[in-house]
Design a protein around this nucleic acid. Structure first.
Lengths: 347, 347
DNA sequence: CTGTTAGCGCATTCAT
DNA sequence: ATGAATGCGCTAACAG
């Protein structure tokens, strides 16, 4: 507090510092950057640093970004902020990216490809160095647009069959295999499936995994036992489950494409006066936070979502370092978590 | 796709467009901006627009930001991304800010003032037009630093007693009043309190509210019946609750400073072989997502967190429009949600 | 080691 | 209605 100034200061620039330190502006620039700092004389450095301190100088990152073409920011697009699973991933992403000095621009598409596209463009305009999308849908050419600009892009949680982008996803078919294996071991023979939207990879893949798992065991694969939800929400899960019940009244178990859908199933059961797991067993997928504390505690397939986010960040960082790097596809292993929503089949 | 080019294009600039449209760069600039578009002739505008389309030109927001001193971005600092309540607020914030054309830079301080300060500085360097912090602690002079630069700042969920920043918080004392009122109505006389950290406003205020509510009813206020958790997490809630039990074994109810702490209390009860609500009633606070689905369903004080986020965004937007605006303090009303974790006192 | 110069991509005065 | 010129704050050659 060398000078008594008004409350609001106009930020100091390199010029200001240079003037006070009686050196050229470029010398200050060198002094500020760790890589070039060694180029500047010890006592001029001291003078500069003192001026910096005195003026409370902070480099303007926008100007740096413009000049260096490095914004030190990346965009992260999510389909739904109220989905605890997504948030887990954001945590992993943000943590890793933060360590690397990047700031995260967050965009919540709210399940809308339209909005996702808007974010893609806005973030692109903001010169993000890369983008992680956890909201990829199959027919999402907005993502391709981004790639055309050479902006690194990685898909997390959901992928695209084309495989042209780096991605990290759980082994979705294996998720289903684990769920069916568990249910069959409990004696269940008529197992329904509430699938995720067919437009997103894990909706499709988990459904396929369900069918494969049944077929492999010589069990009938009936399409009327599958009902896809239009979105990964509790409400849509409930709705889908009711449709399923309207068609099939002999099911003893349901495998839901994710935990939110599973909770929706629980609601649908309750509406019909049915009990879980006594009347019907339910297996979720993803193991969202607190899923073990529900009533009943949810048997589900654990997916390491935070780790998945970290890997997505790593993949993006790789790509940022070398844009021409070949896309990599990481698949992480899920595992079964048995809790209270499954029980031996009685019928 | 007029020309067959390589996959990766270098983004077009105003100059490129100007060259193709055979006009001066500044004309293109005018044409791109809605406010100045009327200044340009209809058919030159058409030429420009065609060139823009042809080259797939997108304005570089970094350059704009540098020139206009408007980054169209704001920073949001949160203490914990794994806290579902916080996420609710982010949703509200991001939604409102997105509508206004702003992008959100997200920073997760992970309960560390150190990291929060780092984010504040990094975001500031990125020229955010304002900052919303949901991680304010009482002794947080980093926040004051930001304000010195004249960067608009609003505090959400947590406030600072100084009151020099705009803020939006729940009526924390009222939260406690509602909780105590409910418990007393159920016949509880010996009510413990797991408080949030005393360094954050709602930790302190809710504790005070608890004391005031007891005193108002002529009930004894005993400090040994209060245990503060060092953080708002399930684990710290459990730990604090165990400390409390070690001191007091005659409590019939506990009011927890938030739902996470309440869940921790549930864990502590379970450890001791006690049941909720039969042995001890528990009231949480905030009404986090899914709290009604826990076992037992949590009786809690509902706080409209998403709305709180929206208000925070509005306050910030106001401040961005006029930096010298007086700080405003919005207080939102909580209400009681009775579920299954509370029952009449038996002792 | 330090100063000079030249932009990064854009908006905005000022001329014309 | 458009062109010319200037500079936002910074880094990166290039000289000296």
């Amino acid at each position: 507090m060398s000078t008594t100034q008004s409350d609001r200061q106009v930020p100091a620039t390199l010029r200001d510092v240079a003037r006070v330190a009686r050196v050229h502006l470029s010398t200050v620039s060198r002094a500020m950057n760790v890589e070039t700092r060694s180029l500047v004389n010890a006592d001029t450095l001291a003078r500069v640093l003192q001026a910096v301190d005195e003026l409370d100088y902070r480099p303007n990152q926008t100007a740096r970004a413009l000049r260096m073409k490095r914004s030190l920011s990346v965009g992260v697009i999510v389909p739904d902020l109220l989905n605890p699973m997504i948030v887990q991933m954001i945590g992993g992403i943000e943590g890793r990216l933060g360590e690397a000095g990047y700031l995260v621009l967050l965009g919540n598409s709210n399940h809308s490809d339209e909005r996702a596209k808007l974010f893609l463009e806005t973030m692109s305009a903001h010169q993000v160095e890369g983008i992680i999308s956890t909201a990829a849908t199959e027919d999402d050419d907005a993502l391709r647009d981004i790639a055309r600009f050479g902006r690194p892009l990685v898909l997390a949680n959901r992928s695209m069959t084309s495989g042209s982008f780096s991605s990290v996803v759980p082994d979705d078919q294996q998720c289903s295999e684990l769920a069916i294996e568990h249910l069959v071991a409990l004696g269940h023979q008529r197992i329904g499936h509430i699938a995720g939207p067919p437009t997103v990879s894990n909706g499709l893949l988990r459904r396929r995994g369900y069918e494969v798992a049944l077929a492999r065991r010589g069990m009938p694969v009936r399409s009327e036992r599958v009902q896809a939800a239009v979105r990964y929400t509790v409400e849509e899960g409930e709705r889908a489950c009711e449709k399923l019940f309207a068609r099939c009244n002999d099911l003893t178990a349901i495998y839901a494409g994710n935990d939110l859908l599973a909770i929706g199933c629980l609601d649908a059961l309750a509406r019909r006066g049915l009990h879980c797991p006594e009347d019907i067993s339910i297996v979720g997928c993803n193991d969202m936070p607190f899923s073990g504390r529900f009533d009943p505690p949810l048997t589900t397939i654990h997916v390491p979502l935070a780790e998945l986010g970290e890997i997505a960040a790593d993949l993006l960082l790789e790509l940022i370092v070398d844009h021409r790097r070949e896309p990599r596809h990481v698949i992480v292993d899920p595992y079964l978590v048995v809790r209270g929503s499954t029980a031996p089949a009685l019928r």
